[in-house]
C-alpha cells in the first residue's frame, strides 16, 4: 500500500534569520513549483519548513542547489468531511491501532472536504495505511498533489 499512497514531503532546515523564509519560497516560485500544503515547525533557534508540492524532485533539486538542506520523507493524506469530528475519526483509528503521530497538518478541499496529512514513524507507515483503510476512511493518492 505504501507505494500507492506515500506522498513525498520535503523538510527544509532553516535558521531563524530574517528573510530566510522569503528566500525559500522565492526559489520555489522562480522554479514554478506549486506548494500544495505546508507546515512550519520551530524551535528557539531554527525551524523546519515542511512542504507537499506538485513536483517534489524538481523542488528538492532547486532547493539543494540553492544551498538549503532538504530531506525527503513519506507522509500520507486522508480525506474527511469538513465537519465536527472529522479529524477525531482519523486520530481515533490511529490511536486504537497504537500508532504514534509525529505531526499532522491539514487544509480544506473545496466546499465540504478536508485533507489531513500525517507523518508517523517509518516502521508503522504500512500499519497506519491499513488501519485507515479498514476504518473505512479515504486515503488520498499522491497524484492529487502532483497534478496541479
Amino acid at each position: 500500500m505504501r507505494a500507492k499512497y506515500a506522498v513525498k514531503q520535503l523538510s527544509i532546515f532553516l535558521e531563524n534569520r530574517k528573510g530566510r523564509l522569503k528566500e525559500v519560497t522565492q526559489v520555489l516560485a522562480e522554479a514554478q513549483v506549486n506548494i500544495r500544503a505546508l507546515a512550519l515547525a520551530e524551535s528557539a533557534e531554527f525551524g523546519i519548513l515542511r512542504l507537499v508540492v506538485d513536483n517534489p524532485e524538481k523542488a528538492k533539486s532547486v532547493l539543494s542547489s540553492s544551498g538549503f538542506t532538504v530531506k525527503e520523507q513519506d507522509v500520507f493524506a486522508v480525506e474527511v468531511p469538513d465537519k465536527p469530528g472529522g479529524f477525531y475519526q482519523v486520530v481515533k483509528i490511529l490511536a486504537d491501532a497504537d500508532i504514534n503521530i509525529d505531526y499532522t497538518y491539514a487544509f480544506v478541499r473545496g466546499q465540504d472536504q478536508a485533507v489531513l496529512i500525517f507523518k508517523v514513524p517509518d516502521e508503522l507507515f504500512e500499519a497506519a495505511l491499513q488501519a485507515i483503510q479498514q476504518g473505512g476512511l479515504k486515503l488520498v493518492e499522491p497524484i492529487f498533489f502532483y497534478n496541479s
Binding site: F13, T69, K71, Q73
Partner: peptide, 11 residues
C-alpha cells in the same frame, strides 16, 4: 553546519 547527512527532518 547542519547538512543532509545530519538532517533527518526531525526537530
Amino acid at each position: 553546519e547542519v547538512d543532509e547527512r545530519v538532517f533527518t527532518g526531525d526537530i
